[in-house]
């Protein structure tokens, strides 16, 4: 594997996150300052969605947020306030990550990186450690519903540069 993270992998995720959050949650997203995670260990937030990417680009993308933020986003997605974070709410947050990542793959393809994604997994609770193969670029997406932190840990697959 070419073990380096490329900045050009980031913009498709920002564009997609803005578009999806506007459409499904009627949010007004803004991008916070980009940073690079030191080391390859991610510690889960209250709610973390994880999606694998395979193909010319491979790795993992993690979407971390607080439970309050997730509840506000799900309430918008379902069109009604939610009182408990049940199976439907979990499904909606997982699908949000799926839509952002899936739409981002179109942007990656436009840059010559054809790839596929895995079904999303959801981690409930703070403190679970997830190890990635390359240090993640962190993109905070700031909305009035709360912040969604996108951790993009992607690199070119071996021999596919």
């Amino acid at each position: 594997m070419n073990n380096s993270m490329r900045i050009e992998f980031v913009q498709p995720f920002v564009d997609s996150a803005f578009s999806v959050l506007r459409e499904v949650a009627q949010a007004k997203p803004q991008r916070g300052p980009l940073s690079l995670r030191t080391g390859t260990t991610f510690t889960s937030q209250e709610l973390t969605s994880l999606i694998g990417v395979t193909g010319k680009v491979e790795g993992v993308v993690l979407y971390g947020m607080s439970l309050i933020c997730a509840q506000k986003i799900v309430s918008k997605m379902l069109g009604m306030p939610i009182t408990e974070f049940d199976e439907m709410a979990s499904s909606a947050i997982a699908e949000l990550a799926n839509m952002i990542t899936g739409n981002a793959t179109a942007g990656l393809e436009a840059n010559g990186f054809v790839c596929d994604i895995t079904p999303p997994s959801l981690v409930h609770g703070i403190g679970t450690q997830i190890t990635t193969t390359v240090p993640a670029l962190i993109v905070p997406i700031i909305t009035e519903l709360g912040d969604v932190e996108i951790n993009i840990s992607l690199s070119l697959a071996n021999g596919k540069d």
Binding site: N98, M99, T101, G102, N103, T105, A106, E109, D116, I117
Partner: peptide, 9 residues
């Protein structure tokens, strides 16, 4: 009905 919007898909 998919989130994957690539032409190849």
């Amino acid at each position: 009905c998919s989130a994957l919007g690539q032409q190849q898909m």
